[in-house]
Amino acid sequence: MTDLAGLAALTALCPPPAVVPPAPDWPRAEVLLGMRLPRDYKELVAVYGPGEFCDFLTLYRPGALSEWVDLTGPMPARLRAQLDAGRTADTHRRGTLPCATEDLLAMGVTGNGHYLFWDTRPRDAPDRWTVAVTERLGAPWFTYSGSVTTFLVDVLRGTLHVPLFPRDLLADGPAFTPSRLRSRVPVTAPSTRPPVDTSTIRTWARANGYDVPDRGRVPIAILEAWVAATHSE
């Protein structure tokens, strides 16, 4: 199945959102990673944006708001280090990896804590990379000889059952749920503003039609709304 045919099959099976955020800066992402990325993955991310397939499977993307799903963030390196540490600590698991750890690049996570990797061999031919899934960074591994797009097509069609995935994954049919996008200051970014007293937030909330208590914790939804409204000012 070609890249275009795979994406066409996926969108027919599981329609993408009508509106998605701009695609990541791919040249910058590839510079940060030190390697080119598969064409099918870049088209997939551009069409669907951030979110979950069947409320279970999330693909990493460059520059994601959360470091937990940021392809160019610290997670891929952390997971590779954990794989190395696990092989050193448990000699019985040596040889169970589908390839050397330096050839594995984490690119997705599931709702039950399993991880999806690319087998990045050959490094200079990303459109030939295949998929590997591991159970919480331990044995067993499941490997798939195809792209991440065709992997999703086969999983969502029900023609491929990954033993690590729940058997009722498709109970409600294939679906894609976009992430709730917010304009907010990343939690790791240093603030250039002075601390704001909660009374200021309460005043803003009431002026904008929110029901906020006089005392106690300001509800998280109101805090997020306030950050989204004032950060752009």
Rank of each mutant, 00 (worst) to 15 (best):
T188W: 15
R184K: 05
D172W: 07
T188D: 12
P195Q: 04
V196P: 01
P166H: 02
V187A: 12
D197A: 10
I201H: 01
P194D: 15
R167V: 12
T203C: 05
G209N: 03
S191V: 09
R180I: 07
W204R: 00
T177F: 02
V162P: 02
D168S: 10
A175C: 13
D211R: 15
T200D: 01
P186V: 08
P174S: 05
G209R: 05
A171T: 02
R184Y: 11
S179A: 15
F165T: 04
F176Q: 07
T200I: 10
V212R: 03
F176M: 13
T198K: 11
P186T: 07
L170H: 02
W204I: 10
V187M: 11
P194A: 15
D168W: 06
P195I: 03
S183D: 13
A189E: 06
N208S: 02
S199Y: 10
R180T: 12
L169M: 02
G209Q: 03
P178Q: 08
R182T: 14
R180A: 13
P163M: 12
R193H: 04
R193G: 03
P190D: 06
R167H: 14
P174W: 03
T198A: 13
A189Q: 08
S183A: 15
S183P: 06
F176L: 10
S183H: 12
A175N: 11
P178M: 07
D172Q: 13
L164Y: 01
G209C: 03
R167A: 15
R206F: 09
V196K: 00
